[in-house]
Nucleic acid binder design. Structure first.
Lengths: 164, 164
DNA sequence: CCCAATCCTTACTTTTAAGTCAACATTGGA
DNA sequence: TCCAATGTTGACTTAAAAGTAAGGATTGGG
């Protein structure tokens, strides 16, 4: 269960744009690339994906660049991640079929619900986090996230009497 | 955010062993491979990893094979997954450094807490699921998991008044 | 004591994801 | 109107993950 390079770098680039969002600033590929320590070519590819998905707007030509398509406070991480990594349960079951034509568990599979549920849990968690929440210092961000996750853990412990 | 092939197949192999666990049966590599539709060589690699981590026990020689090292009801998915995919936050920050020697966000990084929190959330969810819970039919398993996830969602909704 | 069945280990090959490159299209300003 | 700055696109190269292969080690049975 890993976060891919594309997800990581794509999110970082978005955060760069989010920093100038309030002032209506835009950044060129070269600026984004330099600030994140990646190549211009790579930044170009990432921004192309984000642009295609409607998360950023691009302006060509001199004085061009990228900016967020919406305010940073309205962009949630689950949307960002799903755009940068096109994973679906259907794709999962298809790609892990082993040496056979179709997965041996077709029809009745005890693992599929785990995959589905896991995706849902991650999606829920990410949907509570917006880009603007990630602009502060590490300590600040950490505090915000612990609040979200903390409440959940507390609630669970209170009613954790289901059988294993 | 994907589940790797190694995680998927490793878990499946473990479930095969879990099926015969109560009767104390053991399975050979050839049996495991056939039942999961993967090659014997691949099954061998996966079982080697699981054996090294102490999740299964192996018996060499004729009449040999693999069995679970502990009862299926005591093996939780978070342990399984972490064994099959050695991901850590430290490794993450190291591998996504871009073209530079170290990550540009060293010292103060707003993304690191997201990674940490995400891992924690996934780990929490997986720690509630045991191998034995996954042995039933898809419908049964689905019901069990929805119960776990369902309670959590309900609880969250009740007190979801934090600022975004 | 020897053979066959089985697991163990390392090196190699294949496949897939990541990243780069180069030619092109668009825009704004001189 | 032309040029330089910029984003766009698809082909290519490189790096990482997955999977394969082959010889070695161990065990149980005849």
């Amino acid at each position: 269960m890993k976060i891919s390079a594309q997800e990581e770098y794509g999110l970082r680039c978005l955060l760069q744009l989010a920093r100038g969002d309030a002032q209506g600033e835009s950044l060129t590929l070269a600026q984004i690339a330099r600030r994140e320590g990646i190549s211009v070519a790579n930044a170009g590819k990432l921004m192309w994906i984000l642009n295609k998905a409607g998360l950023v707007q691009s302006q060509r030509g001199t004085k061009g660049g990228y900016r967020l398509a919406r305010p940073a406070a309205t962009i949630r991480l689950n949307e960002v991640i799903s755009v940068l990594d096109d994973e679906s349960v259907a794709a999962h079951c298809k790609s892990y079929a082993g040496v056979l034509d179709s997965c041996v568990h077709t029809g009745d599979c005890g693992i599929r619900p785990v995959i589905v549920e896991l995706h849902q849990i991650v999606d829920n968690a990410l949907s509570e986090i917006t880009l603007s929440q990630l602009l502060g210092s590490e300590a600040t961000v950490d505090a915000v996230l612990h609040k979200i996750q903390g409440t959940r853990q507390l609630q669970r412990r209170e009613s954790n009497s289901m059988p294993l």
